[in-house]
Structures are given as structure tokens and as C-alpha cells.
Design a binder for these strands. Sequence first.
DNA 1: CCATAATGTGAGTAATTGCTCATATTCCAC
DNA 2: GTGGAATATGAGCAATTACTCACATTATGG
Lengths: 207, 207
Amino acid sequence: MPPKRRTKARKQPLQQRSRETVAVILEAAARVLEARGLEGYNTNAVAERGGISVGSVYQYFPNKDALTLALITRFEDALLAKVRDAVAASEGKSLTASLNLIVRAQLEAHAERAGLNRILEAEEDRLRPASSGTSAAGELKELVADLLARHRREIARPVDDDAVEDLIVISRAMVDHALQNDLSQAAATRRVLRAIEGYLFGPRPDS
Amino acid sequence: MPPKRRTKARKQPLQQRSRETVAVILEAAARVLEARGLEGYNTNAVAERGGISVGSVYQYFPNKDALTLALITRFEDALLAKVRDAVAASEGKSLTASLNLIVRAQLEAHAERAGLNRILEAEEDRLRPASSGTSAAGELKELVADLLARHRREIARPVDDDAVEDLIVISRAMVDHALQNDLSQAAATRRVLRAIEGYLFGPRPDS
DNA sequence: CCATAATGTGAGTAATTGCTCATATTCCAC
DNA sequence: GTGGAATATGAGCAATTACTCACATTATGG
């Protein structure tokens, strides 16, 4: 056990000035990751890029991982917001149309800063204590579950929690794959939808 | 550019003795990863665990990443072998039965040393120069493509390369997810198959 | 056996980097 | 104003670790 390790930030940002500093730190971290990758991502570089001092970084983030985690959360929140909007906008539409909107939302969220988001997703595994569901993940499940419940008569088999989980896993993997291979949004949407709709509507021949 | 970096091993193992050393190194690396995670994974620990000296590690691996990559390749080869066997064993069987065998093979390959394999898959992203298809990945695609071609009359839509890619992406993501959540092999198989068959047989309502 | 090649050794080095803390500066309440 | 709190600074420490190299040991072919 390496002696100890700070788990809480030294200070909470109270004044306007410090809140701006936190924003500067986050954006600087994002830019360093984009420009130099995980390889060149260190707190000194972040401070330099943000035009502030390392000390300031450690005023508001207990350690480097906490900073990275904050970036991850920021991305997840943005993704969730887009999906929420898509679900809201799909009120009254058919299930297929709704799914289309949601898939597009996910693709857009990832595409915005593809390089950065890819790195963050990879780091997520390392940083999140095994199987600790985030609130963002929970809300995403709820959103999808509600949408499917609303359309339950269009779906053959009842949709349980496992199915929702599977749909999210499938979408995420395919969206990542699409971005990695620079697929057009149209192609990516088509392929993800085929998988999702197949899962929902597809036949289950055997017992 | 950090000055330089060895890209080739100092020596190739020629005699029996050194071939054994290489095996010892690989297994030691695997055990360190299993016992202490990426965190405690360093070349000195690997040497100690293997009961050899660091110098020996660097006789046969130019750098730490090359060692990790060798572990990844080893895992991929094992996976591929299992899938190959499954495909061979599915000669004459129905498509559903064949897919069942293949999915099981994948689950087994991952389950064998789940903790280790999970770490290796995460490292793969970091270590493989963006979008460099490995021969293992290529052969997997071939195997799947051939199997599907053999059963093409049972599938509504023609199966192109993209579809094969998608099927592999979906399987992989779901298998990873299943292992992460300690799903029973039965449950995992059922869910992965539902996704795969849905993708293959599922209806495509719109244009 | 002997010369040569192959293999093995491990203390040490060089470089990186996360993070601290003593100090300085800025802000706000009164 | 003024005093105390909040915020900012950045040189440098401490720890880690990938990797080297001069040397010892072991194998092999003739």
C-alpha cells in the first residue's frame, strides 16, 4: 500500500474566479489528451496548457485520476443530455423513428471530439472500481426502458432489464467501432439500427 | 521524439534453454498482471516472479510493450484456435447450432483467465497502432464469413463484409460484458445468440 | 577440451512525473 | 481600509521504473 493518497480535493471552488480555474483545468486536460494522447498527458503539461500552475490543479483535484474522471463524467453527462433530448423529441413517433433519433444522438455525442472521447472511454475501465454503476449509466437505462415500455405492444418478447442492458452494450460497441473506422453517420446509423431492431424484433427459432 | 527505442529483440531464442526462458517470462508476466493488475505490472516484478533477471527479459523483448503485446497475441491465438475448432465441429449442423458452438468457444476462451484477458483487451487499444488489422482478426473474419456463406440460403439478406464485422463486434462486446458481470455461460450464450440471430434474421421494416 | 557463441545476471542509471508546501497574491466582509 | 479567508504559485522532492552493460556462466561444434 503506497502510504496514503488524497481522495478529496483540498478546496471546493467557492468564488467565481476559482470556478473558472476549474473550467480552465478541465479544458486544458482535454486539449492535452487530444494533442498528445495518454502518453503525453501529465499534470505539469495540463497546467502549462491552461496557463496556470500545477499547484492550482491540486487545489481542486486530489490527484490525476480524479481529474481524468471529471473529464469522463463531463462526457457522460453530455451524452446523456443528448439522449434525453432525443427521447423527448421522439414523443409520439414510431419506435423505429425513436430509436433512429437515439442512435444518432449517441453518434453525434461521440463524434464531437472523437479522439478525446475514445481515450476517455478506454480510461473508464481502469478508473472505475469494478462494476460500480454510475448514476449516468443508471439514467440511460431508465430512459431506454421507459421508451421501450411505451412501445411494448410493437415488440414481440417482453423487454426486461437484461434486454435493456444488452441493447446499450450493443449500441455502445457499435458506435465506438463506427467512429474508429470513420464510418459515415448514415452507414453507422443503419448498421446499429439493424442490430438493435434485430434484437428487439428478431425471431427466436428454438425453445 | 524520445531519442530512440529498441524495436527488435537483442536475440532470437535459438537453443532449448532460451525458448524455455521466453515461456517463463510470458507466464510470469501473465501472473503478475493477474495478481497485481496493470498497476503493479513492471519488468522488475516480472523477472522476480519468473525467477530470472531483468536482463533476460530484455534479451528477448525489446521493451515492455512488446512483452505485453506478446501476451495479447498469445491470447488471440488461443481464442482463434477455439473458434476454429468450433467451426470445424459444426460441419453439417444447422446455422443456429453452429453459432451456438462458436459463441460458447468465445466465452470459454475469455473465461479461462478472465481477469488477465480483460486487462489484455484493454491494453490492446493502447498498443496497436490505430487500425492495424492483425492476422488473427483477419482469420476470424474469414471463418465467420465462410460459415455464413455455407448457410446463405437460411439468411434473408446477403451477408457482406460489414455484416461479418458487425457480428464480431457485437459478440465481442457482449462476451466481455458477460464476463465482467459473472453471467452464467448459459445466460450469456442465450443473450449473445439472440443478438446475433436478430442481426442475421431480423426484419428490416423500412426501405 | 577449447574457442566461440549463446545465454544469463543484477546493480545501477537516467528519466519521468505526481504531488507538496512555503510563500505570494487577490478577494471579500465589516 | 484592514484582516482574514480564498486562491494562486512553481521550484523541487520523492518515488517509481524501464532499460543498460560489463561481466559471469553455460552450451556447442570441431
